[in-house]
Structures are given as structure tokens and as C-alpha cells.
């Protein structure tokens, strides 16, 4: 099936939610490593409300490591700062890393088994084979 529209890509926010814990023999499976073949940095509208409300749902350390591993941590602090809700400058940096750094093609790598999950056209394939369950 060939679609006529431009693809949409995987954001680091999504990466922050993904795990390979359902694989046989894997206990945590988090965070997944990233091998990025194509990265796109785009500009999206900043919404400070959204960013400050999504932060509690994130694993900060995983986010920072993911961004750093693909060379896009910018000047995001390694530690989550306190009272970030009113710190627009900080929220903008988070916004950038979460939503503006996108992966088009590459791989996610299980930290325990080394199993690779392909990302193609912005869609990570997390399906496991029957013998991996």
C-alpha cells in the first residue's frame, strides 16, 4: 500500500513510553536504545500547559539519555528542575526534545536482549515473534 501523504515521525515522547518488557527473558526492557538513521528536526507550536502537564508522566533520565544519545539534548538539564511550571525557558527546551526531534528511520534496541525493533517511515515495529513471547 502506497500512501500519497508525507509521513509523520516518531517523537522522543513516544520513545519515553516504549518498552520491550513483554519479551521472554526480559525484565525491565527500558529504556530502549536508539539507532537513528534519519532524524528530522521540525518546529511545532509550543504549549507550556501541555509540556508542564506531561512532565510528570515521563522518565526524565530516559528522556535525557535518549536525546543525548542522538546528539540532540541541546542544553536540556540532566536533572529535572523543581518548580518548572513557571519556567518558560526550561519548558521550551523540553518541548523541543519531546516533540520537535523526530526519528524517521532507525532502530530501537532492547537494553537486555539486544533485540532490534525497526522504525520505518516513523512507525516503530514493536511486534514480537511467537517464540519471543
Amino acid at each position: 500500500m502506497v500512501f500519497r501523504c508525507a509521513v509523520h515521525n516518531m517523537k522522543l515522547l513516544t520513545h519515553n513510553m516504549l518498552t520491550s518488557k513483554c519479551m521472554k527473558g526480559v525484565t525491565v526492557g527500558y529504556p530502549l536504545g536508539i539507532v537513528a538513521k534519519d532524524i528530522k528536526v521540525s518546529e511545532t507550536e509550543f504549549n507550556s500547559e501541555f509540556v508542564s502537564r506531561i512532565i510528570p508522566k515521563l522518565d526524565w533520565n530516559a528522556l535525557w539519555k535518549a536525546a543525548d544519545s542522538i546528539g540532540h539534548s541541546g542544553d536540556l538539564p540532566q536533572q529535572l528542575m523543581e518548580d518548572y511550571e513557571n519556567n518558560e525557558e526550561f519548558l521550551k527546551k523540553v518541548h523541543h526534545v519531546l516533540l520537535e526531534v523526530e526519528i524517521i528511520n532507525g532502530e530501537l534496541v532492547c537494553p537486555e536482549s539486544g533485540r532490534k525493533f525497526p522504525i520505518s517511515q516513523g512507525i516503530p515495529n514493536m511486534l514480537l515473534n511467537e517464540d519471543e513471547l
Partner: peptide, 29 residues
């Protein structure tokens, strides 16, 4: 194919949706 279609429908309608090819919620923390 559904993942690509979802991707495309979102795009065509001017919204962003991240799509994962997976089984139920098992890929999620």
C-alpha cells in the same frame, strides 16, 4: 497497513499522532 493509514489520516487532517505497530498496550511502559 492500519498504522500507515492512521499516520496518513492524522497528517491529512492537520494533526499529529504518533503510531506504533504493536499488540494491544504491550509495547508501553
Amino acid at each position: 497497513a492500519a498504522c500507515s493509514a492512521t499516520n496518513c489520516t492524522a497528517k491529512e487532517n492537520g494533526v499529529k499522532v504518533d503510531v506504533i505497530n504493536g499488540d494491544l498496550v504491550t509495547p508501553l511502559r
